[in-house]
Nucleic acid binder design. Sequence first.
DNA 1: GATAATTCCGATAGAAACGATATGAATAAT
DNA 2: ATTATTCATATCGTTTCTATCGGAATTATC
Lengths: 148, 148
Amino acid sequence: MKFSAKFEYALVALLYLKCEPDEMPVSGRTLSEKLNLPYRFLEQILSDLKKGGIIRSVRGKQGGYKLSVEPEHISIYDVYQVTEGKFEPWDCTHGESADGCGQSHNLCVINQFYTDFKTTFIDLLKSYTLDRLCNSAKNLKNLSAKVV
Amino acid sequence: MKFSAKFEYALVALLYLKCEPDEMPVSGRTLSEKLNLPYRFLEQILSDLKKGGIIRSVRGKQGGYKLSVEPEHISIYDVYQVTEGKFEPWDCTHGESADGCGQSHNLCVINQFYTDFKTTFIDLLKSYTLDRLCNSAKNLKNLSAKVV
DNA sequence: GATAATTCCGATAGAAACGATATGAATAAT
DNA sequence: ATTATTCATATCGTTTCTATCGGAATTATC
């Protein structure tokens, strides 16, 4: 039960993009350096975020990435899905017959809990937008610049 | 973001113990066979559950395991802690200076979300007791016997 | 047109976590 | 003494996660 580094990096990168002025796209290299994240790994994540429609890219020299939608329309759940895939905390691999889980009903007893958990989790992640996070991160740039 | 097999096995085993008559302890071997779980692995889990005070054991021949407290006082969160350790979905390994997270404040911005998530998670898991689960699992024994 | 900075793509390596197995000692009922 | 059991520890194999690598395609700038 951990969030992956991919997810974490994605959030941080998105926060950076949000707090950037809109004119110029930000390159992967810049993101990597400013946020101190591994460049090649970050590239993969940016690729995922693009595929997921969260950011858009500009190729070639002077290219880079920008948010493709308003920060208030990007939920943490969106980011989760893009980086960690469909949320499926439980492997009900114990037979999938007509009545749901043929072989071992004993496991599926726990489904009540499981379903509840899933709903709660998704609702919470949906309730956080990038904007909501970023409001307390106005000074992101200064801080990350300070690091180096 | 997955529950481990350990956690799943622990829950199923505890459900079995709960639904057993109290007189005799149930051996690890029996649990393993009835629930179709890998014996040695299950032993480890039972050991964890014992260390965590959730079950108690009787050594030697005719020995086995029993719940050490009433099922209504065993929460899923207890089981989670015992099998997966402290719930810490986020590695704030980005410098732990006096103000919490020295180097990269940008990461810690996400702490608002993180804290909220943690609280929600723990509350939900605490709200489910073994008893609550087991009420819908009265026929556990029959079902698992049917499987084989 | 050449150059440089960039996104994009696929392969793979390295590390860590997870699930499971193996060996055997200690304990206690029969 | 024998047998069934808990208990302790080590190790193995697989998968997943994190990260690296090489290079192709694209595009602004000189």
